[in-house]
């Protein structure tokens, strides 16, 4: 392997690593706040990329139907809770639920049918794609997770796997079996010393860094960010401050969907995205998150870059085994984690 190839592979690894970092951070965040291992994180990525591709093709994305449907179900569940005695849901929160779950999707539908989709600038399409995919996050929390929010981690995990399956199926339904690749955000090529750097590569790395900084600021500076951290640190303490687990859950899923959909927009120009592509990409984010012990953001980020590099270099030497290598990487990591923890835990 000469230096050019080395640089190329490293660049590739870091770019993919940036995407895995975003996913890993979202996974760590969701787990910390809600104890849910968000297997469907990758689906947000696939939905984001494919929604963008449909918009580029100038047609109405099927995501809209998913949004309308999920919103209707979420609202129906809120309504049933409000009617069904037990904990009373005040009228105001029901109105808010109607606005978000019914009003917003309908408004977006009206907007989409009016706009000349094919002619829009790239940034506008990206915004529309986010507007379509991101609200699916809180809706997913409301429909699938909120009713079992207090269940053990393992039950939440199985629910997450079930949601993943359903979303892959829905993805096939609305996007079809063909894959798509979207236009890069930049075609420019830069010479940095002796190496060629693609504009999109820079866009991916730049956007990832910007998002990481934005997330940091959100968690460090804003009240809602602090509320999420508080929930992660001490759920009981947070409840006593009036931070409800449902609110924290919806907010976290909103962020996770945002991170996922944005990674999709960044990912889709690099490779062809299929309706079921999200899972494998998401799992690589997982490997990274596990390297960080599902608790440390910096370690997860480092793990993600490591996974990206490992993947890119192994694809050079032995492309058939690159996935085997990436997923086998987790075994020594787990071994190291198991040696670090040696007390009997009650699993409930």
């Amino acid at each position: 392997m000469d230096q050019t190839i080395f640089v190329l592979l490293a660049q590739d690894g870091v770019t993919n690593g940036a995407i895995y970092t975003l996913l890993a951070l979202a996974l760590v965040m969701v787990f910390a706040v809600t104890r849910i291992i968000l297997i469907p994180q990758g689906e947000f990525l696939a939905y984001g990329g494919l929604t963008m591709a449909t918009l580029e093709a100038g047609s109405l994305p099927g995501t809209l139907w998913v949004l309308l449907g999920a919103g209707a179900v979420a609202f129906a569940m809120d309504l049933a809770t409000a009617r069904g005695g037990g904990r009373r849901l005040p009228g105001r929160s029901l109105a808010r639920s109607a606005a978000w779950n019914l009003g917003y999707p309908l408004a977006l539908a009206a907007l989409l049918t009016q706009l000349p989709l094919a002619g829009l600038p790239l940034a506008a399409k990206a915004l529309l794609a986010l507007a379509l995919v991101v609200p699916l996050g809180p809706m997913m929390y409301r429909i699938a997770f909120q009713p079992v929010a207090e269940a053990p981690v393992l039950v939440l995990l199985i629910v997450a796997v079930a949601v993943h399956l359903a979303m892959v199926g829905v993805g096939l339904l609305v996007f079809g079996p063909e894959g798509s690749r979207t236009t890069p955000f930049s075609d420019a090529q830069f010479e940095v010393g002796a190496m060629q750097v693609g504009g999109h590569t820079l866009a991916v790395i730049g956007a990832s860094l910007a998002l990481i900084v934005a997330l940091y600021l959100f968690f460090d500076r804003t009240l809602y960010g602090k509320a999420l951290r508080a929930t992660a640190v001490n759920r009981n303490g947070a409840r006593l401050m009036g931070i409800s687990p449902a609110l924290a859950g919806r907010l976290t899923f909103l962020l996770a969907a945002f991170v996922g959909a944005l990674s999709g927009l960044l990912f889709a120009p690099m490779t062809t995205v299929y309706y079921d592509s999200g899972f494998l990409v998401g799992l690589k984010g997982f490997v990274a998150a596990i390297i960080g012990g599902l608790g440390s953001y910096p370690l997860a980020a480092a793990g993600a870059v490591m996974v990206g590099l490992l993947e890119s270099f192994s694809s050079f030497w032995t492309s058939a085994f690159k996935d085997v290598l990436v997923f086998t990487l987790i075994i020594p990591v787990l071994l190291w984690r198991s040696l670090a923890s040696h007390h009997v835990e009650e699993e409930e």
Binding site: R87, R88, K226, R229, A230, N236, A238, R239, L240, S244
Partner: peptide, 28 residues
């Protein structure tokens, strides 16, 4: 109502275990 609404109405509880947010600053 539920805990959150009770807090909003002006009832607070300082629990026996304190339930502080240990990794966060005092001001937070």
């Amino acid at each position: 109502p539920d805990v959150e609404a009770m807090v909003a109405r002006g009832m607070t509880l300082v629990p026996e275990k304190r339930e502080l947010f240990g990794s966060m600053s005092i001001e937070d």
